[in-house]
């Protein structure tokens, strides 16, 4: 059996890639993809813990969080569509109307 720590290391690496991308990317779609990476790394954690604790609730939680991630992506793309219609691009650097 693969040790638990390997799963945790995998999820930590994926989480870090997602966080790095969230900070460094300018394109809205890429940022949403990075958020998906972070949410899914948490799902790996939940499923791994669930399997090693012999407790089903972690896997149920992972199913819920997949559904929520889909809902969040849907609303995210809807907002990006309305930005795209206004500006013909989803470059987040250009979203600077609201500043102090």
């Amino acid at each position: 059996m693969i040790p638990l720590n390997w799963y945790l290391a995998l999820s930590a690496i994926i989480f870090s890639i997602g966080l790095y991308g969230f900070i460094s990317q300018k394109n809205g779609i890429r940022i949403l993809m990075c958020v998906e990476l972070m949410l899914n790394s948490a799902n790996i954690n939940l499923v791994a813990f669930s399997s090693y604790n012999d407790d089903m609730s972690g896997q149920v939680f992972a199913l819920f969080s997949i559904a929520l991630a889909a809902a969040e992506a849907a609303i995210g793309f809807a907002i990006m569509m309305s930005i795209y219609r206004m500006r013909d691009a989803i470059n987040l650097d250009e979203l600077n109307l609201l500043r102090w």
Partner: peptide, 30 residues
């Protein structure tokens, strides 16, 4: 454009906070 920009910023930060929250919960659960 201001309303859409506000919503975009809120969505991105909200999604990040959801990811951090879920990760934290997964460790508590583990």
């Amino acid at each position: 454009p201001r309303s859409v920009e506000a919503s975009m910023k809120y969505l991105l930060m909200g999604a990040l906070s959801a990811a951090l929250l879920l990760m934290g919960i997964s460790f508590v659960y583990g």
